[in-house]
Design a protein around this nucleic acid. Structure first.
Length: 298
DNA sequence: CTCCAGGCAAGAA
DNA sequence: TTCTTGCATGGA
């Protein structure tokens, strides 16, 4: 899957159906996003790997994504971690034939999937980031959620400058675990959400919550629901965006409701019972159905 | 001004 | 077990 070319750059092979442009539409949905930067030719992002900051660019190539390192090519191990991150981020390991087969005849998905064919679930590979982002997004509009995330990242993340632009890493669980409620309240997070985020950070900093262990857990949802602040919506959101669970389904999601309302041309939002009825046909692919429906709102 | 937003936990019934 | 309420503030 991964090929290294004379240490200048690496390439990751992409599935035949992969559509980078569709993925870019999702990635470009907020002008407040500060964890990566899009430009005419690709994506630039900063990650902290093995204690060091690594800046990389993703540029589409024939049947592949090319990874470049503008500030110098790191050692093999770091390059390999960046490649793994990108495969995770763009969900490149999932074969979508089963989903496309279902969508072919599904009354809700048919046109949406045809329209955005090649889009993949754009994930949040870092578990701490996925959990925090889920909590931040609860019960507030997405614009304000992005504002909160921007403040969170720019107050507690690490950064470096490259070509007059500043690039940020998502704050570490260890860093956030050292804060208190007042520190997060200052960003206009609620007391409740501040407590949730600190609790998650402390659990992860203590090693009680690990992505690798969750991935091996037969009942991920049960484990996630034990975390204070993580309810059914957040658990399924994280399973979908971080843990590659194709059957994760954030049933209570307002965006999902709005997308279904529009697709079905209803004059009201569908009820949970109606949604479950529609979703019977999506069994095993609820996450992709949800993500394509979200895409229809952009 | 009102209503709603990528919900949740805690308390009440 | 299921239903109701407070949270807290920005955006439309």
């Amino acid at each position: 899957m991964k090929r290294v070319h004379e240490e200048q750059y690496s390439e990751i092979a992409t599935p035949a159906d992969f559509n980078f442009e569709e993925c870019l539409v999702h990635l470009g949905r907020s002008s407040q996003e500060n964890l990566y930067r899009l430009d005419d030719s690709g994506i630039t992002k900063l990650l902290k790997i093995g204690g060091q900051l690594v800046l990389f660019r993703i540029v589409p190539a024939a049947g592949a994504l090319r990874i470049e390192f503008p500030l110098g090519v790191p050692a093999y191990q770091e390059r390999d971690e960046v490649a793994a991150y990108i495969e995770d981020w763009f969900d490149l390991q999932t074969d979508l034939q089963g989903f496309y087969a279902i969508a072919e005849t599904d009354p809700v998905l048919k046109s949406v999937v045809r329209q955005h064919y090649g889009l993949r679930v754009i994930g949040v590979p870092d578990l701490f980031e996925a959990l925090v982002w889920a909590v931040m997004g609860q019960q507030i509009n997405l614009t304000f959620a992005y504002t909160l995330k921007k403040r969170f990242v720019e107050n507690f993340g690490e950064s470096l400058f490259y070509e007059n632009e500043r690039y940020w890493t998502f704050p570490s669980a260890e860093k956030i675990a050292s804060l208190n409620v007042a520190d997060l309240r200052a960003l206009q997070l609620t007391v409740r959400k501040s407590e949730y985020i600190l609790g998650i950070a402390q659990a992860m900093a203590r090693g009680e919550l690990q992505k690798q262990r969750l991935l091996q857990e037969p009942d991920m949802e049960r484990v996630l629901l034990e975390i204070r602040g993580i309810g059914a919506w957040s658990a399924n959101y994280v399973m979908m965006k971080c843990l590659h669970s194709q059957s994760a389904f954030p049933l209570a999601d307002v965006g999902l409701h709005n997308a279904l309302k529009a697709q079905l041309q209803l004059d009201r939002k569908p009820t949970p019972v109606e949604i479950m009825e529609l979703a019977k046909n999506w069994e095993g692919w609820q996450a992709y159905a949800t993500f394509y429906l979200w895409r229809s709102l952009l």
